Amino acid sequence: MARLADELAVPAPSPVHQLQAELVQLIVPPEAEAEQLYPGWFRLAFPLASSLLLWAAILWGASHLA
């Protein structure tokens, strides 16, 4: 039968909990610094510009094949 712990009861350190705490320190990576991102205008303009350039090259090449 389970018994209730009184207010004076001090929890005993468990080897399992201590091992788990040590393992968590090995698993959880330290917080990484935020990497510098490209500015928003560049992240929007570069894919659009490169897409337009590739489509222009495709259409130019297709016109020369016909």
Rank of each mutant, 00 (worst) to 15 (best):
65 L>E: 06
12 A>M: 07
35 E>M: 08
8 L>I: 04
20 Q>H: 00
52 L>K: 03
60 W>I: 05
20 Q>T: 00
28 V>A: 11
23 L>F: 07
42 F>S: 00
63 S>N: 15
9 A>F: 09
45 A>K: 01
32 A>L: 10
21 A>Y: 04
30 P>H: 09
30 P>A: 13
35 E>S: 08
37 L>T: 10
62 A>H: 05
10 V>Y: 01
34 A>D: 04
29 P>W: 01
33 E>D: 07
31 E>G: 08
18 Q>L: 15
51 S>Y: 08
7 E>G: 06
8 L>K: 13
4 L>S: 14
1 M>P: 03
22 E>C: 00
41 W>N: 07
35 E>V: 06
24 V>M: 14
35 E>G: 04
66 A>W: 13
15 P>R: 05
2 A>E: 09
1 M>D: 11
32 A>N: 05
21 A>D: 13
62 A>N: 07
21 A>Q: 14
47 P>E: 02
25 Q>P: 01
39 P>L: 00
7 E>K: 06
63 S>E: 15
66 A>Q: 14
28 V>R: 13
63 S>M: 15
19 L>F: 11
55 W>P: 01
7 E>Q: 08
5 A>H: 15
50 S>N: 09
61 G>K: 05
53 L>K: 03
39 P>M: 03
46 F>T: 00
33 E>F: 00
18 Q>N: 06
50 S>M: 10
48 L>W: 10
33 E>T: 05
62 A>Y: 10
3 R>K: 11
48 L>V: 15
22 E>M: 03
59 L>I: 00
53 L>Y: 08
19 L>A: 15
42 F>H: 04
36 Q>M: 12
33 E>S: 09
28 V>Y: 03
51 S>I: 04
51 S>Q: 04
23 L>Q: 09
57 A>P: 02
65 L>R: 10
55 W>Q: 09
57 A>F: 13
26 L>P: 03
10 V>Q: 13
24 V>Q: 15
47 P>N: 04
46 F>R: 06
62 A>K: 07
36 Q>V: 07
56 A>R: 07
60 W>Y: 14
45 A>R: 03
49 A>N: 05
17 H>M: 12
33 E>Q: 09
5 A>Y: 13
35 E>F: 01
23 L>N: 10
2 A>Y: 11
42 F>A: 14
5 A>S: 11
47 P>H: 05
15 P>I: 02
39 P>Y: 01
62 A>W: 11
16 V>H: 05
1 M>N: 11
19 L>C: 09
37 L>A: 12
20 Q>A: 10
22 E>H: 00
9 A>E: 12
2 A>I: 12
1 M>K: 10
5 A>K: 13
6 D>R: 11
14 S>F: 00
14 S>P: 03
56 A>H: 07
32 A>H: 07
50 S>I: 06
22 E>I: 02
29 P>I: 03
51 S>W: 08
20 Q>K: 06
39 P>H: 10
58 I>V: 15
50 S>K: 03
28 V>M: 09
57 A>I: 13
61 G>T: 15
15 P>F: 02
